[in-house]
Structure formats: C-alpha cells, structure tokens
C-alpha cells in the first residue's frame, strides 16, 4: 500500500465521531468606533508609518516628486502593465538591490495593522520582501475591523500567492530585543487616501 493510502486509512480508522463546526457569530466580535484610527494606532505600534493623502492624485504627485537619488525604485501605482513586464519574472539576483517599492494593498485590518495584497498587485512575488523599503497604498474605505471580516472580503486563491503584511520585517531572536529590519523591508509606510 502507498504511504498515502496507509495514512488515509489509519486516519479514517482512528478519527473520532464527527463533530460540528462552530458557528462564528460576527456580533460578538470587537467593534471599533473609528476603524481607520485603530488601524493607524496599531500600525505605528508594530513599527509601521502612515501618511494620509486626500486622494490618489496626491499620492501620484508625491511619488513622482520623491527624490530617488539614483536608487533602484519601482512604482506599480497607476503604471501601464507594459512598463512593469520586465520585472514580472525577474530573479532575486536582478532584484537584490531594490531600494523602494510602491505596491497597492487591497484591504487593511484595524485590529492588527495588516494589509492584504495578492500576486496581481505584487507584479513579482519577491517585490514586497526583497526591497529595503516598502510603501503600501491603501484606500481608507477598505479597512475592516478584524481578520474575520477580512476573509469575508478576499479570495485567498484568486491568484497563486497572497499575503497579509503587518509592519516592517522584524525579529527579537536575540534576547527578546526588538530589531526592525530582519530579512525583509527595513521600513513599511502606508499611504492612506481618503476619497
């Protein structure tokens, strides 16, 4: 018998009588009077930064004005598909010196400051991780209260890969001292727009 069949058979023989899934009552979940304020507070606590914009145009202006000093910067916000195509299949070697990346988040979560983005928004799965600094652009309207709400609003398998990102990469593996900038971005800034 194959290992698969042996495992499935042993599992079937040993599993207990079927029990029911619990009913998740959304009424008992925490409610935030101001989810955007809660999001901002938690984000700052976990090492993220936030900049408020009136609308998307303001963000665009700010990105184009930013002094890039010859650094390797990649902006996906309001870009033509074609201009990003070369990066789609770029390797880690080619992306190793990325300094700053601008990506669009689909949804934010008030309770933990996390932002969901999937492969379509990333262009290349490596981008949000390999860059030294990450900027996520988010519409304030797309902030939900909790992770329970978040999963109601996303489809995790819409693309091949998706992730919740909450703040910059970090570690406390040396004596529990928090250090920002482990293997991923050293900073995470959220550009939040309110139109």
């Amino acid at each position: 018998m194959s290992s698969k069949n042996r495992i499935l058979q042993a599992t079937a023989e040993n599993q207990p009588t079927l029990t029911q899934l619990p009913f998740i009552d959304f009424d008992s979940l925490i409610q935030y009077p101001d989810p955007v304020a809660a999001f901002e507070m938690v984000l700052k606590k976990i090492g993220g930064e936030i900049i408020h914009f009136k609308n998307e145009e303001e963000i665009l202006k700010s990105i184009s004005k930013a002094d890039q000093d010859g650094e390797f910067v990649l902006n996906t916000f309001r870009q033509q598909e074609g201009s990003l195509a070369p990066f789609k299949n770029a390797s880690a070697v080619e992306l190793a010196h990325l300094n700053r990346v601008y990506l669009c988040g689909a949804l934010g979560v008030a309770e933990n400051g996390a932002i969901w983005l999937d492969e379509n928004a990333m262009v290349n799965r490596l981008l949000p991780f390999i860059t030294q600094h990450l900027v996520l652009i988010l519409n304030a309207k797309n902030i939900v209260a909790t992770m329970n709400h978040a999963y109601q609003n996303i489809r995790v398998d819409e693309s091949g890969f998706g992730t919740f990102i909450a703040g910059p990469s970090k570690t406390a593996d040396i004596e529990q001292s928090l250090v920002i900038g482990a293997h991923g971005p050293r900073s995470l800034t959220v550009y939040l727009f309110h139109n």
């Binding site: 938690v42 976990i46 979560v109 309770e111 933990n112 400051g113 996390a114 991780f129 992770m147 995790v156 398998d157 693309s159 091949g160 890969f161 998706g162 992730t163 919740f164 990102i165 909450a166 703040g167 910059p168 990469s169 970090k170 991923g184």
Partner: peptide, 10 residues
Amino acid sequence: PITTYSSHFH
C-alpha cells in the same frame, strides 16, 4: 496582533 507576514501559497 499578527505576525508581520501571513503568506498564502496556492
């Protein structure tokens, strides 16, 4: 409140 990365591989 959550780990920095919660990555969903499909």
